[in-house]
Amino acid sequence: MSVYILSSEVYLPDLLDPIDIVNAIYPITRVGKKVNSLARRMAENVGIERRPFVLDLEKLPDKKLKNPEDHPVSWCEKIVARFINIVGRDSIGFLSVSYNISYHTDYLPNLVTQVVLNTGLQLDHPPEELPFYGCASGILSVKNAVSYCKRYRKAAVVLIFDQCSKLAYIPSDSEDPYLKKTMKSNLLFSDGIAGLIIIPEEMKTSGILPEILSVQVDYLPGDGIKMENGAFTLSNDVKNIIPPVVSKKVIKPVLEKYRVDKEDINEWSIHQGGLAIIDRFKDEEVLGLSENQIRSSKEFFRKYGNLSSPSCFLTFDHFFKKRGGGSGDLGMIVGFGAGYYMGSVLYRWD
């Protein structure tokens, strides 16, 4: 039975100047001019144009939402409402929400239940909430949504968000032991949400939609991306460790199974862990993609930084909204991150 992506939605909060974020996290009055200058230079070298950020910089060191409408429950309600307008409330039978970092604190009942109550969804399958599966969490949600659609033949909604600004480490002074360990993560990560509505074949009416051919997930235990005493740290070895494993476990087996060459895939939505990580997929020993194939993933990193789990879906949303694919064109969404969890979604415009 065929399953399709009917619609894709993305919401990004206010776009802030990365230097303004640097000056708020590393003010000269607290860390000194030397550290502030170092952080500014690093931010300029990273090259992110504007970072979607929900953190109220004026309230630091307290980490508070700047706008109440950027609460994660509100984000989820916003996307669900858009999907209800497309298929109707009664056609949606399943909801999966995945994330790693959230400003949500009133967690009973859980976040996904609050979304169900506030949107009036009448689900026929228990909704699921998947926290802390790294930047592949959205792929896990898609896998479960596809299984639901095939079994129950109703629509499933997948929501993937992260609010990475919640993990911004605010150093106490220039001698803070975690100042250097956390500077990279403080300069890379942003906030946002993506959503998909997935439907069974009988709900497809007309037009070309992406048919999901395969969802592959895998795992390799590793702690190069981790929390340490409340500080979010990244190992310099991540770019060397993860891309080859991702290629071996969740990309190449899918290509082989469906007898697809990597050159046949026009739309690559690769997790924007950073330019160096994306570029690793050009190496022949990893995957051998061309610069053109990874261009969109790199473009969205330069625009917005690393949104964590929604990142690869941000790139997919671009392809979906562009509707450039002709019938038979192929695409792949690739997510990977802490854990290390990893996954891929192979689709064909049909």
Score class of each variant (00 low, 15 high):
1 M>N: 06
6 L>D: 06
12 L>C: 12
12 L>D: 04
12 L>I: 13
14 D>P: 00
16 L>C: 12
22 V>I: 05
23 N>Y: 01
23 N>T: 14
30 R>C: 01
34 K>H: 05
35 V>Y: 00
35 V>R: 02
36 N>P: 01
41 R>W: 01
47 G>E: 01
52 P>Q: 04
58 E>G: 05
59 K>Q: 03
64 K>G: 02
65 L>V: 05
69 E>C: 09
70 D>R: 02
74 S>V: 08
82 R>A: 04
92 I>F: 13
96 S>Y: 12
103 Y>V: 13
104 H>P: 02
107 Y>R: 15
109 P>H: 14
118 N>S: 15
122 Q>W: 00
122 Q>G: 05
124 D>Y: 03
128 E>K: 11
139 I>V: 13
149 C>M: 13
155 A>Q: 02
156 A>E: 13
160 I>Q: 02
163 Q>P: 07
171 P>A: 12
171 P>M: 08
173 D>N: 13
176 D>L: 10
177 P>I: 13
183 M>A: 08
184 K>T: 14
186 N>M: 02
192 G>E: 02
192 G>W: 01
193 I>S: 02
195 G>I: 03
197 I>P: 01
200 P>G: 15
201 E>T: 03
202 E>M: 00
206 S>R: 06
210 P>C: 11
215 V>M: 09
221 P>H: 08
222 G>Y: 12
222 G>H: 11
223 D>M: 06
224 G>A: 07
232 F>W: 12
233 T>P: 00
235 S>P: 00
244 P>F: 15
245 V>N: 11
248 K>G: 00
251 I>L: 07
254 V>S: 12
257 K>S: 02
258 Y>E: 10
260 V>Y: 13
262 K>N: 05
268 W>Q: 10
268 W>C: 09
269 S>R: 07
269 S>N: 07
271 H>D: 06
275 L>T: 15
277 I>H: 02
281 F>Q: 03
283 D>M: 14
284 E>M: 07
284 E>S: 09
285 E>D: 12
287 L>N: 12
293 Q>K: 12
293 Q>R: 08
300 F>E: 04
310 P>S: 04
320 F>K: 06
320 F>Q: 06
321 K>E: 06
323 R>M: 14
325 G>N: 11
328 G>D: 11
328 G>T: 14
330 L>N: 03
337 G>R: 05
348 R>Y: 09
350 D>F: 08
